[in-house]
Design a protein around this nucleic acid. Structure first.
Lengths: 341, 341
DNA sequence: TCGCTTTCTGATATCGATTTCATAGTAACA
DNA sequence: TGTTACTATGAAATCGATATCAGAAAGCGA
């Protein structure tokens, strides 16, 4: 590996001072045409590329932002990450992504890491599994950093947030099932501790209440495909042909809806003839399932973008809206059919 | 935002020199028990967390590594990323992930970015679309950095690489189709410029040759689901019932296999009754398709891990194997059936 | 008790940029 | 032509850690 050249090396070759090199690299317009030429030549000769790391010390900016998500492997989040990355790059920022696996303790550890790396700000999807109280140490870290929440709110906290109208989305999903004639609708729930799940649950209950429907049933899961798959298999095996079985399922996300689809394929329960399923998210595989999944679309990529835009304003101490709420959209495909009695 | 405390603040409170603070943070065992206590108290009082950014200057290590992949949104790569992240974290490294979108020009730009950030090393999936010659500027950057390739090789370059036995995997996929009685097997190709695609193609051809089968057909695509979907729709619409239609398809990756599945669903061509499909990768949705996809599994996560392990050795100038080649495994599911004549 | 280690700590230079301040040189104006 | 006002550049301090080197204090053997 060749030795890396510094601003001093360039200065020596160009016969000017290091300050001038810095000026040419950052504000070329303030240096005289012919010194600029000399410097550019020297830069080319050494193929000099400035050390951003070193620059961030006096600048007191690293131009990094941190992004904490549950799991990059989850296609919902990888989409969001891409939105974050693309906007960041446009503004000269780089993204440090870490996975909390929805575990609070990891979230805390990573927050500390991001702080020690002195990222300029953090976009945070709070972990789903957590104690009632926010740990003091983590809280003090949050106060020391520029934070924007994404996807999931924290109760009683005024941190800026970018999210989707979960209540509205869930409400319209269930409403849709109702208009299709379904009277027995089950909610396949996500991680209980997340505000996201709570809001979707409220939307589910609100729609039922409005339609004066008393039949309700929640199957507890955790947003994960395999868990949903197992829960469904288990529940249906126990209650074969019982009237406790719903005619439709509203899944708190597509991953679980797909898990359900997989379970029903194995159980030889036909979708949508025997049971209808609607998901939430519109992840990129939801049109490749069998049958293609009807779902509530979330603008995932856009959420990532908005979150960065908000964060950059926070960093630059500009005025911001405390909360950006994006709307969902019903995508009709083939996993829901009319239920005739 | 509270002011960030430095090693000097801690020193003042603890009544010792900054050097001692540094020692307590890095090599506590060499400082006397009771000064260590004093320092620890001061650290706690200020909730001091050292600035890694600043530390990396004299250390001449950033403890960052760069990871260039085509697209984080591609589930194949997001798995690999997770493998990279997990091992990195264990060794005190953080990962800076960027997306080349398989475009050489972006790859070059990001390489430069990573260099300017002075990452300790780079794990690189070379972009698929590129000119014949390796651009000089990019090449000189590669020489200045610690590089490990992953997934895709570069012709005529001795850079260490972690990959899978593509030839063998493809060969066994086609061999499997042959043993199932298929005689007309199409190859649904990935990006032509990638070594990965070339090797899989060779595996395909080798298996056919060995079986003395002359029927061959390649449908050019680009590893992407939508492209594969469109190509299939187009090809089948043109050649309805012609004997130019294969009885089985070997897709260069699962994403394209799933695109094909989607196309056939729409074309009312039954899988596997009318046509068999085998994929490559075993991405996490491949068991949720209809029918569940038979495929050649790649240890994606493991590849990420191995790449990091190799890279860390390169960074520490330890001896390494120039090339780590992992094996694939045939996963039999339901998208391939026996073909009886 | 003397001299020699060993243990522990502090002073200082350093990493590679930026930034402030000072100043030389030139232009502008009356 | 003298005063003022810019323009262009350099010198030096700074960011927050680490690392080297030197010296004080303590321990130990003879």
């Amino acid at each position: 590996m060749k030795k890396k050249s510094t601003i001093y090396d360039v200065a020596k070759i160009a016969g000017v001072s290091p300050s001038t090199i810095s000026r040419v690299m950052n504000t070329p317009e303030i240096v005289a045409e012919n010194t600029r030429q000399k410097v550019m030549n020297a830069v080319k000769e050494l193929t000099f590329i400035p050390n951003m790391m070193a620059a961030s010390m006096p600048r007191k900016r690293t131009n990094y932002i941190g992004l904490i998500i549950p799991d990059i492997t989850n296609i919902f989040f990888s989409n969001l990450v891409r939105g974050v990355q693309d906007v960041c790059e446009k503004h000269g920022y780089s993204v440090l992504v870490v996975n909390s696996d929805d575990i609070q303790e990891k979230e805390g550890r990573y927050l500390k890491l991001l702080y020690s790396r002195r990222v300029d700000g953090v976009i945070l999807t709070v972990a789903g599994y957590r104690e009632e109280e926010f740990p003091k140490e983590e809280l003090s870290l949050l106060k020391k950093m520029n934070i924007v929440l994404i996807d999931r709110e924290i109760n009683g906290m005024t941190t800026p947030i970018v999210k989707v109208n979960n209540f509205g989305g869930a409400y319209s999903a269930v409403k849709y099932l109702l208009t299709m004639g379904h009277k027995k609708i089950m909610y396949l729930a996500g991680i209980e501790g997340t505000k996201t799940n709570q809001e979707r649950e409220k939307g589910y209950l609100a729609a039922l209440k409005e339609a004066h429907i008393n039949w309700k049933k929640e199957l507890a899961a955790d947003f994960r495909l395999d868990t949903a798959y197992q829960k469904i298999i288990q529940y249906w095996s126990q209650l074969k042909n019982s009237d406790k079985l719903p005619t439709a399922i509203f899944a708190a996300n597509d991953l679980m809806a797909i898990g359900a689809l997989k379970a029903f394929a194995q159980l030889k329960v036909r979708v949508p003839e025997d049971i209808s399923i609607i998901g939430f998210d519109n992840i990129s595989f939801s049109d490749c399932t069998y049958p293609p999944l009807t779902t509530i679309a979330q603008p995932t990529y856009l959420m990532g973008q908005k979150a960065v835009e908000t964060l950059l304003k926070v960093i630059d101490k500009k005025k911001i809206k405390k909360s950006v709420e994006l709307e969902t959209e019903l995508i009709e495909r083939d996993s829901v059919s009319r239920w005739e009695v």
